[in-house]
Amino acid sequence: MLEQADVAMPTAAAARLSRFARPALGLLLPLCLALGWELAVWLGYSNGRLVPPPTKVFATIAELAKSGELSRHITTTLSRVAAGFALGVVAGTVLGAVSGYWGLARRLLDPTVQALRAIPSIAWVPLFILWLGIFETSKVALIAVGVFFPVYLGVMGAILSVDRKIVEVGRIFRLSGPAMIRRILLPAVLPAYVVALRVGLGLGWMFVVAAEFMGASEGLGYLLIDGQQLGKPAQIVAAIVIFAILGKTTDWLIELATAPLLRWQDAFGRERGAA
C-alpha cells in the first residue's frame, strides 16, 4: 500500500507533489531497508529466522487479523491506554492548574510532585501489583502515572509563563476571575497544553508495554512476550509495527483535533495562508 502511494507520486499534479513529497521522502529510507532485507532473504543471503522479512511480518499480521485475535489485542491495549491517559490527563491538568494559578498550592504541592517524578515509574510496578492486583487496575494506574507528570509540568509551566502584559490587558478591561481564566489564561496556555498532551500520550504508549509485560493474557504487549517465549520473531515485529501505527495515529488525532484551536499561532497554517 505504501509502495503504491510512492509509485503514484510522479503522476500527481505539481502542487500535490510538493504537499506529498516531504512525507514520501521520509518513507524512502524505511522502504529501501525493508525491500533490501526482503531481497536478501529471497536471494538466500540470510534465512530470515531471527529477523523476519517484511512479507513474513505482514503474513503474521494477516493471520492474526483473520483469527480475530489481532482486533482483540488492539482493543485491549487501546482501552488500557485510553483509561490511563484519561486519568493521567485529568489529574495532571487539575493539579497543574492549581499549582500554576495559586502560589500557596505550588509551594505546598510542587516539591512533593517533583520528588515523586524523580522515581522511575517502573519502580512502582511491584507496589501497584500488591495494592491493586495483577489485573487491569494496576496496569491503568501505571499508565496514568506515566501520563500525569508531563501533563502536570506542561500545564503548570504554561500558566506560570503566561505573559504578564497580556494579563494586564484583561485587568484594564476589568475581567472577573472566571472571565480572566476563560478569555486570557485558557487560550494562552492552549499551545503548551497540546504539546503536554502529546508528550503524555507518548509516555502512555511506553508504559502500556511495561504494564502488559507484568503478566497479561492479552494486549499487544502480551504479543511481544508471547513471541519471545515461543520463539516467533515475526509476531514481535508485527506487534512493534502495530504499536508504531497506533502511536502515530493517536498523536496525529490530537494534532488534528486541536489544529483549529491553534490556527492563530505563527507556526500553524503559514503555508496555506489566511486567505
Binding site: 497580556i166 494586564e168 490587558v169 476589568r174 486570557i184 487560550p187 492552549l190 492563530w264
Partner: peptide, 20 residues
C-alpha cells in the same frame, strides 16, 4: 484604586491577543 471603565490605556506594545 483599580482599573476603571472610563479610563483606557495604550501601551508601548500593541498587546493584542494573538488568538483573536
Amino acid at each position: 484604586t483599580a482599573p476603571h471603565a472610563k479610563i483606557g490605556i495604550i501601551f508601548q506594545e500593541p498587546r493584542l491577543l494573538p488568538w483573536l
